[in-house]
Design a protein around this nucleic acid. Structure first.
Length: 217
DNA sequence: TTCCTGCGGT
DNA sequence: ACCGCCGGAA
Protein backbone atom coordinates (compact mmCIF):
# COMPACT_ATOMS: atom_id res chain seq x y z
CA UNK A 1 0.00 0.00 0.00
CA UNK A 2 1.05 3.58 -0.48
CA UNK A 3 2.53 5.35 2.56
CA UNK A 4 -0.34 7.75 3.16
CA UNK A 5 -1.14 8.90 6.68
CA UNK A 6 -4.30 6.76 6.72
CA UNK A 7 -2.38 3.66 5.60
CA UNK A 8 0.33 4.25 8.17
CA UNK A 9 -2.40 4.36 10.79
CA UNK A 10 -3.83 1.06 9.53
CA UNK A 11 -0.34 -0.45 9.62
CA UNK A 12 0.28 0.68 13.21
CA UNK A 13 -3.06 -0.55 14.50
CA UNK A 14 -2.76 -3.92 12.78
CA UNK A 15 0.78 -4.34 14.07
CA UNK A 16 -0.08 -3.47 17.67
CA UNK A 17 -3.16 -5.68 17.59
CA UNK A 18 -1.03 -8.62 16.43
CA UNK A 19 1.56 -7.84 19.11
CA UNK A 20 -1.01 -8.12 21.92
CA UNK A 21 -0.99 -11.89 21.47
CA UNK A 22 2.54 -12.42 20.15
CA UNK A 23 4.92 -10.26 22.18
CA UNK A 24 8.30 -11.79 22.95
CA UNK A 25 9.54 -11.38 26.52
CA UNK A 26 13.15 -10.44 27.22
CA UNK A 27 14.84 -9.42 30.49
CA UNK A 28 15.93 -6.03 29.09
CA UNK A 29 12.32 -5.13 28.38
CA UNK A 30 11.71 -4.89 32.13
CA UNK A 31 13.14 -2.23 34.45
CA UNK A 32 14.33 -0.16 31.50
CA UNK A 33 17.02 2.08 32.96
CA UNK A 34 19.44 3.70 30.50
CA UNK A 35 22.20 1.42 31.80
CA UNK A 36 20.29 -1.84 31.37
CA UNK A 37 19.01 -0.75 27.98
CA UNK A 38 22.47 0.29 26.78
CA UNK A 39 24.11 -3.02 27.75
CA UNK A 40 21.35 -4.95 26.01
CA UNK A 41 21.64 -2.88 22.83
CA UNK A 42 25.41 -3.26 22.69
CA UNK A 43 24.97 -7.04 22.94
CA UNK A 44 22.12 -7.18 20.44
CA UNK A 45 23.75 -5.61 17.41
CA UNK A 46 24.17 -8.15 14.63
CA UNK A 47 23.15 -10.79 17.13
CA UNK A 48 19.95 -12.79 17.63
CA UNK A 49 17.96 -11.75 20.69
CA UNK A 50 17.44 -15.31 21.99
CA UNK A 51 21.19 -15.82 21.92
CA UNK A 52 21.76 -12.71 24.04
CA UNK A 53 19.44 -13.66 26.94
CA UNK A 54 21.80 -15.89 29.01
CA UNK A 55 24.76 -13.56 28.41
CA UNK A 56 22.76 -10.50 29.39
CA UNK A 57 21.53 -12.18 32.58
CA UNK A 58 25.06 -13.20 33.52
CA UNK A 59 26.37 -9.69 32.84
CA UNK A 60 23.67 -8.06 34.94
CA UNK A 61 24.28 -10.46 37.79
CA UNK A 62 28.00 -9.64 37.73
CA UNK A 63 27.44 -5.91 37.15
CA UNK A 64 24.12 -4.70 38.59
CA UNK A 65 25.10 -1.02 38.15
CA UNK A 66 27.14 1.13 35.78
CA UNK A 67 29.67 1.61 38.57
CA UNK A 68 30.12 -2.17 38.91
CA UNK A 69 30.52 -2.48 35.15
CA UNK A 70 33.10 0.30 35.00
CA UNK A 71 35.24 -1.58 37.51
CA UNK A 72 35.09 -5.01 35.90
CA UNK A 73 38.21 -6.35 34.17
CA UNK A 74 38.25 -6.67 30.42
CA UNK A 75 39.23 -10.35 30.61
CA UNK A 76 36.09 -11.08 32.62
CA UNK A 77 33.95 -9.24 30.12
CA UNK A 78 35.62 -10.98 27.19
CA UNK A 79 34.87 -14.38 28.70
CA UNK A 80 31.25 -13.39 29.33
CA UNK A 81 30.69 -12.09 25.80
CA UNK A 82 32.53 -14.86 23.98
CA UNK A 83 29.43 -16.86 22.93
CA UNK A 84 28.10 -13.82 21.07
CA UNK A 85 31.04 -13.52 18.69
CA UNK A 86 32.28 -10.09 17.54
CA UNK A 87 35.05 -10.23 20.13
CA UNK A 88 35.95 -6.56 19.74
CA UNK A 89 32.73 -5.94 21.65
CA UNK A 90 34.50 -6.77 24.94
CA UNK A 91 36.96 -3.92 24.45
CA UNK A 92 34.19 -1.70 23.16
CA UNK A 93 31.86 -2.40 26.08
CA UNK A 94 34.70 -1.81 28.54
CA UNK A 95 35.49 1.53 26.90
CA UNK A 96 31.81 2.39 26.92
CA UNK A 97 31.08 1.73 30.59
CA UNK A 98 34.29 3.42 31.79
CA UNK A 99 33.80 6.49 29.66
CA UNK A 100 30.12 6.71 30.60
CA UNK A 101 30.90 6.30 34.29
CA UNK A 102 33.60 8.96 34.32
CA UNK A 103 31.51 11.45 32.35
CA UNK A 104 28.01 10.89 33.71
CA UNK A 105 28.46 9.32 37.13
CA UNK A 106 25.82 6.90 38.31
CA UNK A 107 23.51 6.91 35.31
CA UNK A 108 23.55 7.53 31.58
CA UNK A 109 21.88 10.39 29.72
CA UNK A 110 18.99 9.75 27.32
CA UNK A 111 19.74 12.48 24.80
CA UNK A 112 20.79 11.14 21.42
CA UNK A 113 23.65 13.60 20.95
CA UNK A 114 25.24 12.77 24.29
CA UNK A 115 24.75 9.04 23.76
CA UNK A 116 26.33 9.11 20.31
CA UNK A 117 29.49 10.64 21.74
CA UNK A 118 30.10 7.45 23.72
CA UNK A 119 32.31 4.72 22.20
CA UNK A 120 30.42 2.09 20.20
CA UNK A 121 27.16 4.05 20.19
CA UNK A 122 25.85 5.05 16.78
CA UNK A 123 22.56 5.85 15.08
CA UNK A 124 20.69 2.75 16.17
CA UNK A 125 21.88 2.22 19.74
CA UNK A 126 21.46 5.90 20.68
CA UNK A 127 17.91 5.90 19.33
CA UNK A 128 17.11 2.65 21.13
CA UNK A 129 18.22 4.02 24.51
CA UNK A 130 16.37 7.32 23.91
CA UNK A 131 13.24 5.39 22.99
CA UNK A 132 13.16 2.46 25.43
CA UNK A 133 14.70 4.18 28.46
CA UNK A 134 13.79 7.79 27.68
CA UNK A 135 10.35 7.25 26.11
CA UNK A 136 11.24 9.49 23.16
CA UNK A 137 9.43 9.11 19.83
CA UNK A 138 12.50 8.58 17.67
CA UNK A 139 12.75 6.04 14.85
CA UNK A 140 14.76 2.85 15.28
CA UNK A 141 15.93 1.64 11.88
CA UNK A 142 17.72 -1.68 11.66
CA UNK A 143 17.79 -4.13 8.77
CA UNK A 144 14.59 -5.71 10.11
CA UNK A 145 12.60 -2.49 10.21
CA UNK A 146 13.89 -1.31 6.83
CA UNK A 147 12.97 -4.62 5.21
CA UNK A 148 9.52 -4.74 6.80
CA UNK A 149 8.54 -1.15 5.98
CA UNK A 150 9.98 -1.52 2.50
CA UNK A 151 7.90 -4.60 1.83
CA UNK A 152 4.64 -3.28 3.23
CA UNK A 153 4.82 0.13 1.57
CA UNK A 154 6.58 -0.94 -1.61
CA UNK A 155 10.00 0.70 -1.31
CA UNK A 156 13.08 -1.07 -2.68
CA UNK A 157 14.81 -3.04 0.10
CA UNK A 158 18.00 -4.13 -1.59
CA UNK A 159 21.43 -3.30 -0.16
CA UNK A 160 21.79 -0.78 2.63
CA UNK A 161 18.13 0.17 2.84
CA UNK A 162 18.63 1.40 6.39
CA UNK A 163 20.48 4.53 5.38
CA UNK A 164 18.28 5.61 2.51
CA UNK A 165 16.51 8.91 3.05
CA UNK A 166 13.08 7.69 1.94
CA UNK A 167 13.20 4.68 4.28
CA UNK A 168 14.30 6.90 7.15
CA UNK A 169 11.52 9.40 6.50
CA UNK A 170 8.91 6.65 6.31
CA UNK A 171 10.18 5.08 9.55
CA UNK A 172 9.99 8.44 11.32
CA UNK A 173 6.42 9.00 10.12
CA UNK A 174 5.39 5.59 11.47
CA UNK A 175 6.61 6.16 15.05
CA UNK A 176 3.62 7.03 17.27
CA UNK A 177 3.72 9.99 19.68
CA UNK A 178 2.45 7.75 22.45
CA UNK A 179 4.25 4.60 23.67
CA UNK A 180 7.04 4.52 21.08
CA UNK A 181 8.73 1.72 23.04
CA UNK A 182 5.81 -0.68 22.63
CA UNK A 183 5.57 0.17 18.94
CA UNK A 184 9.24 -0.66 18.40
CA UNK A 185 9.08 -3.91 20.37
CA UNK A 186 6.10 -4.80 18.20
CA UNK A 187 7.87 -4.06 14.94
CA UNK A 188 11.03 -5.91 16.04
CA UNK A 189 8.99 -8.94 17.12
CA UNK A 190 7.02 -8.85 13.90
CA UNK A 191 10.21 -8.76 11.84
CA UNK A 192 11.67 -11.67 13.81
CA UNK A 193 8.55 -13.88 13.81
CA UNK A 194 6.53 -13.06 10.67
CA UNK A 195 8.27 -10.73 8.22
CA UNK A 196 11.58 -12.61 8.21
CA UNK A 197 14.36 -12.01 5.72
CA UNK A 198 14.00 -15.42 4.11
CA UNK A 199 10.65 -17.15 3.62
CA UNK A 200 8.45 -14.56 5.32
CA UNK A 201 5.26 -16.08 6.72
CA UNK A 202 2.85 -14.14 4.52
CA UNK A 203 0.11 -16.76 4.90
CA UNK A 204 -0.18 -16.04 8.65
CA UNK A 205 0.56 -12.33 8.33
CA UNK A 206 -2.18 -9.94 9.50
CA UNK A 207 -0.81 -7.19 7.25
CA UNK A 208 -0.63 -9.32 4.08
CA UNK A 209 -3.92 -8.00 2.72
CA UNK A 210 -2.44 -4.49 2.66
CA UNK A 211 1.13 -5.46 1.81
CA UNK A 212 2.83 -4.67 -1.45
CA UNK A 213 5.26 -7.58 -1.07
CA UNK A 214 2.68 -10.24 -0.22
CA UNK A 215 0.48 -9.06 -3.10
CA UNK A 216 3.31 -9.78 -5.52
CA UNK A 217 3.58 -13.36 -4.16
C1' DT B 1 24.93 -20.41 2.96
C1' DT B 2 22.67 -16.43 4.96
C1' DC B 3 21.32 -13.71 8.67
C1' DC B 4 21.15 -11.66 13.41
C1' DT B 5 17.69 -5.04 17.08
C1' DG B 6 25.38 -2.01 13.72
C1' DC B 7 29.58 0.41 14.16
C1' DG B 8 33.92 2.43 12.94
C1' DG B 9 37.50 3.04 9.77
C1' DT B 10 38.50 4.01 5.07
C1' DA C 1 29.48 3.96 -0.27
C1' DC C 2 31.86 -0.08 1.17
C1' DC C 3 33.91 -3.43 4.21
C1' DG C 4 35.39 -6.46 8.22
C1' DC C 5 33.85 -8.23 12.31
C1' DC C 6 32.20 -13.39 14.37
C1' DG C 7 29.75 -17.19 16.90
C1' DG C 8 25.60 -19.64 16.43
C1' DA C 9 21.11 -20.81 14.49
C1' DA C 10 18.15 -21.85 10.50
Amino acid sequence: MKPTNDNIDVFRRTLLSWWQGNARDFPWRHNRTPYRTAIAELMLRRTRAEQVVPVYNAYMEANPTLEDASQSAIDTTEALLYPLGLRWRAQNMTDFVRDARSRYGSDLPTSIDELKSLPGVGEYVSAAIACFAGDQSVALIDTNVARLLGRVFGLPVTGEARRRADVKRLAERCVPDLNPGEYHYAILDFGALICTARRPKCTSCPIAQYCNFAAKG
